[in-house]
Write a protein that binds this DNA or RNA. Structure first.
Lengths: 345, 345
DNA sequence: GTGAAAGCGCTAACAG
DNA sequence: CTGTTAGCGCTTTCAC
């Protein structure tokens, strides 16, 4: 054993038992204690049991830092989200955290306030500490993501990046069920209130809507783009009210709620005059009135699946599957959609 | 220099430059490189600059793990919240994260799903990694918290614990402004819809309401306790409607929204017949209709202040201030409160 | 199966 | 001001 203790720690107060203490108490070498925990098979079963018990009694806990230094195994995973304040992420965080804890990993949630600079700094800080990262929404360019993915196993959410494993919501199917729902309520002309043009999801949703509407023989209009905010939805109200559409699907719930409020404010009743469908099923969707029919993204599932994919990829030497995983979105029917009235308003 | 490299790392792939590489490239001792970064004063300015530049060119970044091992300085802080899904915490997380990043710390958000078991496990995992912890809401007993506080500097949010620094919302002042607002709208009889009895905040709020009402000469009723959920608020509706109260303050926004909906469902109009005030100003407060007048907890400020208090306490040898810090709550007036009608409904 | 010893990358005490 | 050295606590060859 090396001569220890000459390098006195500043805070002698709460001396935590180390592997050396356990070894001494058991009358074995430190390396044996280490093995007893990490490779139980390679040590005499009886000895191992004794070590375990003594360790337990002493309240020994392996120092994760010390373990991580030689092995790189920090048991930390990073989840980067652009805005913890956005209800969209709650479910994702929750799901990711559950899956991480399940595997005895701790999740480091990095909130980057929609800012590329903060994102860079946050990642710079977190990257060396974590074993892998899930990119919730990233302001980073594809190439920047690829560079990062070389440093640490990476999984991307709701964004497809060839070569990087990703898990995305099946917007197409989700949109289809929304349109089918509206068709079932006898709507003949439906509109899409678009979100930001740069949004990958927006493109998917609009395309899916057009296709579904076509297949079901509905007329389809498109308004926008609008900002993905209450105000953005509000701006769309006038155009929607003036149109022939009796039902609209909005880019997301926040836009849908903004739209509903503006419609109501100008005397258009929801769902009596216009049915409204949102996307995402955020917490507020059942707080507004009428409560919002919406396509629920499988938030928790997305987060959990991403983490599991990450862990799986870390475990194996082989590069992880390259095809994006599609997780089903489901329609949640609430009060904001209703059967079309016979007489046009 | 010790003979290095015999202990080959498994992944030779992405060799990150170490302090030794920089030292060699600069022709100085490793310790000098270390000093150049941690104690710039103690090294020849010219040498330091050269080292810095070389390090920059090589893309050297100190390995936080290795740094943390001898010093204990992980640059990690934990924030424990009982439920990331609860809108109440968003602001807190955001504020805490901002303050942490400002000081070059990374925040580890541990979500404990309202479960004491998960909380224990999460803390067990995180505690050895972090330098301090902020307890957002904890299911732990006072004594358990005190035990933890001995291991790591701790700050508690919205809970007062003698001996442990804490930062709490000034519910008393917040409630007073709510009651003054209602009195100004000529309400004479007001009611409090109580939350869970075990809640420290609930007790504070009710007491403050009674006192404020007394001082302003209002009659005050109390209903509850109810669960702090939409359903809980709904349950209160009947009692409220049957009472003489023309205005109610609810334990929190979620209860207030549940109450409003149930009232409206039974034909009581808000705010025409009954004014409703919530507490916390969660995201949903401006999504519901009518939008909710509410006492806004200084969420981001709470989080930020807690982190700053924590960091301050870690910095100094002296035990941190023991008096809980009171942060002001402010009334946000929206649509759910209105002047009392002359004729009683 | 077990012990000895060399490191992981960095910091800090000690000399000069 | 700078170099030397001993460790932080754990893992992992390498011998026996």
């Amino acid at each position: 054993m090396t001569c220890r203790g000459a390098y006195r720690r500043k805070v002698e107060e709460h001396r935590v038992p180390t592997i050396y203490d356990v070894a001494q108490a058991c009358g074995v070498a430190p390396s044996t204690v280490s093995r007893a925990f990490s490779r139980p098979g390679r040590v005499n079963a009886e000895t191992a049991a004794r070590i375990r018990q003594v360790a337990e009694e002493m309240g020994y806990r392996a120092n994760p830092l010390a373990r991580a230094l030689p092995t790189g195994k920090t048991s930390l995973l990073a989840l980067v989200v652009s805005d913890v304040t956005n209800p969209f992420y709650f479910g994702i965080i929750r799901g990711a955290e559950l899956a991480a804890n399940e595997a005895d990993y701790t999740l480091l949630v990095a909130d980057v306030y929609e800012s590329a600079v903060v994102e860079r700094k946050a990642l710079e800080r977190a990257l060396p500490l974590v074993e892998g990262v899930v990119l919730g929404t990233s302001r980073m360019s594809d190439s920047a993501i690829r560079v990062m993915a070389q440093q640490r196993p990476t999984v991307v959410l709701n964004r497809v990046l060839t070569g990087i494993p990703s898990v995305v919501t099946d917007n197409t199917r989700g949109m289809r069920s929304a349109v089918e729902h509206l068709a079932g309520l006898e709507h003949r002309t439906v509109a899409y209130v678009a979100g930001p043009e740069a949004s990958w999801a927006d493109g998917m949703r609009w395309r899916a809507m057009r296709e579904s509407a076509d297949e079901l023989g509905l007329r389809v209009l498109r308004f926008g783009p609008y900002a993905p905010t209450l105000g953005g939805g509000g701006e769309a109200a006038e155009a929607v009210a003036a149109s022939a559409a009796t039902a609209v699907v909005a880019y997301n719930d926040v836009v849908a709620i903004g739209l509903m409020r503006a419609l109501q404010a100008s005397g258009v009743r929801v769902p009596r005059d216009v049915s409204v469908v949102g996307f995402d099923n955020i917490f507020g969707a059942e707080l507004c009135s009428p409560t919002l029919t919406t396509v629920a993204a499988p938030l928790a599932a997305l987060g959990a699946y991403a983490v599991r994919t990450l862990l799986a990829g870390m475990g194996s030497r082989t590069p992880p599957q390259v095809r994006p995983a599609l997780l089903p979105a489901t329609l949640v029917v609430r009060e904001s959609t209703a059967r079309r009235l016979r007489r046009r308003r």
